[in-house]
Write a protein that binds this DNA or RNA. Structure first.
Lengths: 219, 219
DNA sequence: ATTTAATGTTAACATTTGTTACGTAATGGT
DNA sequence: ACCATTACGTAACAAATGTTAACATTAAAT
């Protein structure tokens, strides 16, 4: 049992209430905005912020188990940008805890404490890597790099390659890689398909040649 | 006295040895590579990694006081990329502590513990903001955004605007913003100069119109 | 003082990416 | 079944950025 799984079972034992949202619904912070912490118990969500230009910048796909609100608290700059959490799987379930109670739980339990301590460290590693990926590559390299980062959480091996078991639209990719419109994404993806590096199977991305995909990333 | 300053005085009291390096020298991890932690006591350093393509990706300017090695430990991916620390001021001084000893100190002291706990959180905020900046902007917006991030640590008000009291070459900017050559940076900087937004005074960047500079950033 | 290396400047051209417009196909709600 | 919505595909053109090269200027090394 991982530390994260331990957190879930801990919250369950404490009879913390859960809420469930359907695909493409948003976890709104109505009422409980400032006072509640959310822990993703099941499903996948996409976190993003809306920039003042109206464009959406996607931060990460989070797969259960994960602590949603820790990230949220840190990302919202001042003035806090609207932080979106959209359900990407058929449904997603969250534990909803009063912030004060959540931290009381954490501080009373050594294992949870160490988990949270590690949380920021891991997110920092991910973030710096992403930053490097997006900064040092052109848009095409950024897309290739982004796709490879999905493998760990969502990739499943098949005879034809690695299938990313997640619905990712061109618009989503644009939001992650800072590409202005889905048209440019389409051009890049089509290129990769033509080269036999990628394919689309049942609306899912199939990485047919990971080696050549990573070759297109600067680092 | 900030927590960071407290850490410095703490290390001084413990008679932890320091090392001093001159401008544009590198803090090499010779011998003490795995076992030592470094704390920047005075000066400014630039942290960067060299990508397999040979290009340099600049991560941050760190101003004393700061803990160098925490960042280093996390950035080096596997296989660990060479993590460079270059002195940017006339000289820089570091405390050099055995890693085991360093953590013993931290864990024995509540204030230091809270400082380190906060360290990752702050770095994560910075990193996600940087990521957003570099991803959602074109190169020109990235440069504008990068320059504004320098204001907090290095900006001093003058009658003509905000002077960035730090030597930043076009090549440096390229490394931070993922611009391939200093030529493209020059084009962008020259543009900003022509518009009266920037100026160069004694080899330093002078931000003459912050408002118009930020206007050029997507968010 | 002289030489060497680092940095800035400019320009021409190639490549990538953005922008806009229009069309098709699939999906979901009523 | 119908309509509205969402997503994908394609293309022409504009704008930004990369690439390369040549040369000027400044800082560092000897």
């Amino acid at each position: 049992m991982t530390d994260a799984e331990y957190l879930l079972s801990f919250l369950q034992e404490k009879k913390v209430p859960t809420i469930t949202k359907k695909r493409h619904k948003y976890l709104a912070y109505q009422g409980c905005e400032q006072t509640c912490t959310y822990v993703l118990a099941e499903g996948v969500v996409k976190t993003s912020v809306i920039l003042r230009t109206g464009r959406e910048f996607n931060i990460a796909y989070l797969k259960a188990p994960d602590i949603i609100s820790l990230l949220r608290d840190e990302v919202s700059h001042n003035p806090p940008a609207p932080f979106n959490i959209r359900v990407e799987t058929q449904s997603a379930t969250f534990y909803q805890v009063e912030r004060v109670v959540f931290w009381k739980y954490i501080n009373q339990n050594a294992r949870l404490q160490s988990y949270v301590k590690d949380y920021y460290r891991r997110k920092l590693i991910e973030s710096i890597y992403q930053q490097q990926l997006m900064t040092t590559n052109g848009k095409r390299g950024a897309v290739c790099g982004f796709l490879t980062t999905l493998i760990d959480n969502f990739g499943t091996d098949t005879p034809d390659g690695i299938l990313l078991n997640l619905s990712v639209t061109n618009e989503d990719i644009a939001g992650f890689c800072g590409i202005s419109t889905r048209n440019s994404v389409n051009r890049i993806m089509h290129d990769l398909k033509d080269q036999g590096i990628l394919d689309i199977r049942h609306k899912r991305i199939l990485i047919r040649d990971l080696s050549r995909l990573t070759d297109l990333i600067g680092e």
